[in-house]
Simulated assay, not measured.
Amino acid sequence: MTYEENYLDWVRDAYAMEKQAESMLEKMADRLEHYPDLRARIVQHIEETRSQQALVKSVIERYDTSSSVFKDAVGKLSALGQAMGGMLAEDEVVKGAISGYVFENLEIASYTSLIAAAELIGDHEGARIFGQILEQEVAMAEWLSTHLPEVTEQFMVRSAEPGVEAKK
């Protein structure tokens, strides 16, 4: 494969990844009832994610290629499976926050790689866009890392109270 073919394949992967992120975040936000700070940050990141999708799509469109319908579908199916699996867990909120942190770090690695690829092929606009997205992903990962102990503690306190729902 040429540099550009690899790059465009990874850009399409990033678009599918952002679609998956939106789906996962929406399902998590819809289910959160007792963790307002976490829900508010997730809702904020949903908006960031939608903006990121548009930015990634703009890179795809500049190269007159399309996002992968297959990858989009697999990503959405994967997100649905994760959301459904989390609904069954008694510690859904903690596992969801941990999964979110892991996913943010996957995005960080992906955009770091995309920046390098964009620079190699001379797509300075793509590198700028991916740098902007990377900053948002780092901010979300840092927020989750900082607040994970608090979410865990809130869950444990709620779960120790008889008759109090803790999982969401």
Rank of each mutant, 00 (worst) to 15 (best):
Y63D: 07
A89F: 01
S113I: 14
A139C: 08
Y111F: 14
E61G: 00
D72S: 11
G86T: 01
D64T: 10
R41S: 09
A14F: 06
S66T: 07
S145P: 01
G75D: 03
L144I: 14
P149C: 05
K95G: 12
M17V: 11
A97L: 04
G75V: 05
T65D: 06
E104A: 08
A79K: 09
K19G: 05
A29G: 06
G81A: 13
M87V: 05
W143P: 01
A73C: 01
K95C: 08
E47F: 12
V102D: 09
G126W: 01
Y7Q: 05
N6K: 08
H45N: 11
I121N: 02
R31C: 00
V102L: 12
E104Y: 00
A139V: 05
M84F: 09
E33K: 12
V157D: 08
G75S: 07
I133Y: 00
H34Y: 12
V102C: 02
A29R: 07
D30Q: 10
E135M: 06
A73K: 13
T49M: 06
E150M: 09
A141Q: 08
I129P: 01
L134Y: 06
E18K: 10
Q44D: 15
S78H: 11
A141C: 14
I108S: 10
G100N: 14
N6M: 13
I115C: 05
M24R: 11
M1P: 06
V164S: 13
A21R: 06
I60Q: 10
L25V: 06
Q44M: 07
K71L: 15
E47N: 15
S113T: 15
K57Y: 13
A116Q: 15
R158T: 09
V59N: 08
F70L: 10
Y111E: 07
E137G: 05
A97M: 12
G96K: 08
S23G: 00
F155H: 10
L80N: 04
A166R: 11
H147G: 00
L120G: 02
G75Y: 02
K168Y: 11
S66K: 07
L55E: 13
I46F: 03
G96A: 15
E142G: 04
V138C: 01
M84R: 14
H147Q: 12
S23P: 00
I115S: 02
L144H: 03
V11R: 01
L25I: 10
E18Q: 14
A141G: 15
R31N: 11
G122W: 05
F103T: 09
K71A: 13
S110E: 08
E104K: 04
M24A: 14
E5L: 07
L120E: 14
Q52K: 06
